[in-house]
Simulated scan of single mutants.
Amino acid sequence: MKSQNIFLIIVVFVVSVSVVYMLTNSETTEDYIEKIEKERERQFKFIRFNIDSPLTAEQKQGFQALSFYPIDPEFRIKAKMVPVEDRKMIEVPLTDGSVEKYLRHSYAEFELKGKPHRLLLLQSVKEVDMRNFFLAFADATSGEETYGGGRYINLRQDGKNSITIDFNLAYNPYCAYNPDFACPLPPKENILEVGILAGEKDYKKE
């Protein structure tokens, strides 16, 4: 299995996605949409052409585009970070039955569509920047319009007790494209009953 490669793609996304988060108060909706579109184009090019892509050579030949929900600024949310009382390392199960260690760091509390939610923020044991976090979640679209094993968002703390969660940047784990990869599964705290109609949809083989 290629679970060791999962961390590398997370690092790549953290670096690139952090640029998207650097939004100013004067930014227009059009500016925001343009930034998300550029990130999606970068993501497509990585999956289509990069040597570290999870796609096989055969898959790349027929790969034309990634599938996304329309960009919706309402799914970009400022959340309050609440430290986990029993902060400790846990073993997160992967899709191949193995485990990876993550720190249970904080809960991100926010409102979406008028309802309160709370998601668990994890931090990899390999993370060198203590302001970076990993969010794996599943929702009512999982197994229907989106990958059944959930989706990921890489987050960066942007305030003393706050963090921005942009579901428009939710992306598929490697195992959504290729079962030879092992990917972390969302913890039970991060299984949402609502549908997150934002971010990447499921990969459909041609």
Rank of each mutant, 00 (worst) to 15 (best):
M1I: 01
M1Y: 10
S3G: 00
Q4L: 12
Q4T: 12
Q4W: 11
N5L: 15
I6N: 00
I6Q: 06
I6Y: 09
I10W: 12
V11Y: 05
F13P: 04
V14L: 04
V19Q: 02
V20Y: 06
M22N: 10
T24V: 08
N25C: 04
E27Y: 06
E34A: 05
I36R: 02
E37K: 04
E37F: 02
E39I: 07
E41S: 10
E41Y: 02
E41H: 08
R42V: 03
K45D: 13
F46D: 05
I47T: 14
R48Y: 14
F49P: 02
N50C: 03
D52E: 15
S53G: 14
T56A: 12
T56H: 11
Q59H: 13
G62N: 15
F63H: 13
F63N: 12
F63Y: 13
A65L: 12
S67R: 13
F68I: 03
P70C: 09
D72F: 01
E74K: 09
F75I: 00
A79F: 03
K80Q: 00
K80L: 02
M81I: 00
V82R: 04
V82E: 08
V84D: 11
V84E: 12
E85C: 04
E85D: 13
E85W: 10
D86R: 15
K88W: 03
E91C: 02
V92E: 05
P93H: 05
P93M: 00
P93K: 08
P93W: 02
L94D: 01
T95N: 01
G97M: 05
G97P: 04
G97W: 00
S98K: 06
Y102M: 07
R104S: 12
R104N: 03
H105G: 07
H105F: 12
Y107S: 05
E109Y: 03
E109P: 01
F110E: 06
F110W: 08
F110K: 09
L112G: 09
K115P: 01
R118Q: 15
L120W: 12
L122P: 12
Q123G: 08
S124V: 04
V125I: 09
E127W: 07
V128W: 01
V128T: 05
M130P: 03
N132R: 15
N132I: 11
A138V: 10
A140G: 14
T141L: 07
T141R: 07
S142Q: 07
S142R: 00
G143E: 05
G143R: 03
E144K: 09
E144F: 06
E144Y: 06
E145S: 09
E145K: 10
R151Y: 06
R151Q: 08
Y152E: 05
N154K: 07
R156A: 06
D158W: 08
K160H: 06
N161C: 00
S162K: 03
I165K: 03
N172Q: 11
P173T: 10
P173S: 10
P173H: 03
C175L: 11
C175M: 13
A176S: 14
A176C: 11
A176T: 08
Y177P: 11
N178G: 14
N178S: 14
P179T: 11
D180K: 09
C183I: 06
L185D: 02
P186Q: 06
E189K: 09
N190L: 13
I191P: 01
E193C: 00
V194D: 15
A198N: 02
G199N: 13
Y203S: 10
Y203E: 13
K205W: 14
K205Q: 13
